[in-house]
């Protein structure tokens, strides 16, 4: 498709209908089998990382010398760092491109930036972008696989995978698991990816938050999703409690009173007394202590928040191996 501009009238100008093999754009288009297989791969990666220095070294043969570009149009700490370490653990060569320090600032289009990165020899592109659908757009025009590291309010598939992976380290199955996601659902790509993944894997998903951040439409996201406005009621049955950040930067135009929000939805130790003793507390980060969650709960015995970050590495190793392995 890239040549469509130079070809004469008579070529179809629509993006090619297929996306490059190995791409990971959205959980929505993934099957439960593909999800299970990636989760299994992640576990294999982790055990090989932890077994011995020798097995860890051996991993670097997996993608030795392969080139991975990390294209970030939006700020990121954990996603960027864990993708970079994941790639390096597998022996890949990485380069990080930040929108603010590249030709993107000069007005280059997303697709042209993609062509440029591809032309320099990148074999996979990991990208984060503030526009929903940006990864999809890129994948339509490129030949190399595109891995979505978060696109606007749409999806953040590797986060949902690492969340599921973390749940499985504490719970025996996703099927039948009761997962409560609390907070700014509307603006959250993490919530969308998690709702899609958990619904596909047979978990019970309850979304919780005020109307401004959780419109009734959210129930249409995936089969079997429930909405609950009362966090205390919802906490009682949850096996997993996932707190989301209120995205202040996206709130323009909404009438949301922060004090009301804290009163009604903050996860406190007091509230945690309602929860099951074996419920785990998760947060995709970045976390604002004192806002959606108190420090006591974030650092408390039921919290697996730090472990989530750590699990990002083996999960992203599995995703990269799939992306680049599939092209051989």
């Amino acid at each position: 498709m890239r040549s469509s501009k130079s070809k004469q009238r008579g070529r179809k100008q629509k993006p090619a209908p297929s996306i490059p093999t190995g791409s990971l754009l959205a959980i929505e288009s993934f099957s439960p089998e593909e999800i299970s297989s990636l989760l299994k791969q992640s576990a294999a990666m982790q055990s090989q990382l932890e077994k011995s220095p020798a097995s860890r070294r051996q991993l670097t043969n997996t993608l030795a010398g392969r080139r991975v570009a990390l294209l970030f149009y939006e700020a990121s700490t954990r996603t960027r760092v864990s993708f970079e370490f994941a790639a390096k653990n597998l022996g890949a060569v990485t380069t990080v491109v930040h929108a603010a320090a590249s030709s993107i600032e000069k007005g280059e289009s997303l697709v042209d930036t993609g062509y440029t990165i591809e032309a320099t020899g990148a074999e996979a592109i990991v990208m984060r972008h503030p526009s929903s659908g940006a990864a999809q757009l890129m994948a339509h025009y490129l030949k190399v696989p595109v891995i979505n590291a978060g696109d606007g309010m749409h999806e953040h598939p590797t986060q949902a995978l690492l969340d599921a992976y973390t749940m499985l380290r504490h719970k025996k199955s996703l099927r039948g698991l009761r997962v409560l996601i609390v907070g700014d659902i509307f603006h959250s790509r993490v919530a969308r990816s998690n709702a899609q993944l958990l619904s596909k894997m047979g978990a019970h998903v309850t979304l919780c938050g005020p109307n401004e951040l959780l419109p009734e439409l959210a129930a249409t996201l995936a089969p079997g999703i429930e909405l609950q406005r009362d966090i205390d009621a919802a906490l009682k049955t949850a096996d997993v409690i996932m707190m989301l950040r209120v995205q202040k930067e996206r709130l323009s135009g909404l009438n949301l009173n922060i004090e009301d929000y804290i009163r009604d939805y903050q996860l406190t130790q007091d509230r945690m007394r309602n929860a099951k003793p074996d419920a785990i507390v998760m947060h995709p980060g970045p976390m604002i202590r004192g806002m959606e969650i108190t420090a006591e709960v974030a650092d408390g015995p039921q919290s697996v928040i730090v472990e989530q970050v750590a699990n990002g590495v083996p999960v992203r190793m599995a995703v990269l191996a799939r992306a680049l392995g599939a092209r051989k």
Partner: peptide, 17 residues
């Protein structure tokens, strides 16, 4: 309609628009 790029409905919610 500031920042809106399609109809409000299940599709816009799903696509994060």
């Amino acid at each position: 309609t500031g920042g809106c790029s399609m109809n409000l409905g299940p599709t816009s919610f799903r696509l994060g628009l």
